[in-house]
């Protein structure tokens, strides 16, 4: 039985998902922890993949299975799952890692059923134990709890990880063996489900109470110009903007309905990002149950830091333009 670590390389319109490359880097790290390591193998499915193969081989994939066909240009679950299943039955890998993206969150569990194995989803950490088995660490109950997940009796041991959780991969030049996959067997697959189009979002406003990320601004934002930056950043992230009473009174915010606090709204997003907020009880009561709280304030003694996971001491007027830049906002 080999100890190969497989990584599914996801691509959408010839853009490789960041999660896939991060997992490749992670595979390299995990291999180094194993007593009897195998190969690092990538599987890439799509159409016109020659450039992407180059990228994959730059990050440590020793073997790359390539299923390249026009039929596979748009993601179709049955085709992609059939190819992965076929390869798994053929090669019997030890571990299979997949990004917990839209595609991966469906493909992973589908393949797990077809090859009869377990999959740990949305892992925040991956480890190797003394028997060279994968240990996946997953959060539960909104992240209050972390649990180790093992899959000792079934192969491959599967895990999915969301983008941005793992370290950015490092370039490792390896001689990659490219193996084209013959997909003639797909003609036997007649899916009832057909993808007919793919399109970009119109950014739609998300209600404050439902947003996964909320950017709150206080008096320290300083002026309407910088407030606009908050609005743009929130829109880009698919989140919402909240304010404190002073920011509302200055006329920067969109209105009373965006005020967060005891006499305003209560929110509990995954990420709360506060700019120029002092941290009065009024406001804190409205956001203290957010999962991750990051506050930015130029005053190191700001009260808000006592209620934050991270307190960034810095000049908001300098940081906001840099954030816009990193997010590709003009």
């Amino acid at each position: 039985m080999n100890k190969d670590i497989w990584v599914f390389i996801e691509q959408v319109q010839s853009n490789i998902s960041g999660a896939s490359l991060e997992l490749l880097g992670e595979a390299v790290r995990l291999k180094s922890k194993m007593k009897n390591p195998g190969k690092i193998v990538a599987v890439i499915i799509g159409s016109q993949l020659s450039e992407l193969i180059q990228v994959v081989s730059m990050f440590g994939a020793e073997k790359i299975y390539v299923a390249d066909h026009r039929k596979l240009r748009l993601y179709q679950p049955d085709y992609y799952a059939a190819i992965l299943t076929h390869l798994i039955h053929q090669e019997d890998p030890h571990i299979l890692l997949i990004g917990a993206t839209y595609i991966g969150s469906q493909l992973g569990p589908m393949v797990a059923i077809r090859v009869d194995t377990g999959i740990a989803a949305h892992c925040v950490e991956l480890k190797i134990d003394d028997n060279d088995n994968l240990v996946a660490v997953v959060p539960a109950f909104g992240g209050k709890l972390l649990g180790d997940i093992l899959c000792p009796n079934y192969r491959p041991q599967m895990a999915s990880v969301k983008p941005g959780i793992l370290e950015k991969p490092e370039r490792i030049e390896v001689q990659s063996q490219i193996v084209p996959v013959d997909i003639n067997f797909l003609s036997l697959v007649e899916p009832k489900l057909k993808p007919v189009g793919i399109c970009c979002h119109e950014p739609k406003g998300v209600p404050l109470e439902q947003a996964e990320v909320v950017i709150c601004g206080g008096w320290g934002v300083g002026d309407a110009e910088h407030w606009q930056m908050l609005e743009k950043i929130a829109a880009k992230l698919g989140g919402a903007v909240g304010c404190t009473r002073p920011a509302l009174d200055e006329g920067w915010s969109q209105g009373e309905h965006t005020m967060v606090g005891t006499s305003g709204k209560s929110i509990r997003p995954n990420v709360y990002l506060g700019f120029g907020i002092s941290g009065s009880t009024h406001h804190v009561c409205g956001m203290k149950d957010s999962k991750l709280i990051i506050s930015v304030n130029k005053d190191e003694e700001a009260e808000i830091f006592n209620f934050s996971d991270f307190g960034l001491v810095g000049d908001i007027k300098e940081i906001l333009p840099l954030l816009m830049q990193s997010l590709g906002i003009s």
Binding site: P163, L237, G238, L273, L292, I294, L327
Partner: peptide, 14 residues
């Protein structure tokens, strides 16, 4: 730091 933590918090910044 903010970008990294947004990602870690599950917010897509791709």
């Amino acid at each position: 730091f903010i970008i990294d933590n947004l990602k870690a918090g599950g917010i897509s910044v791709e």
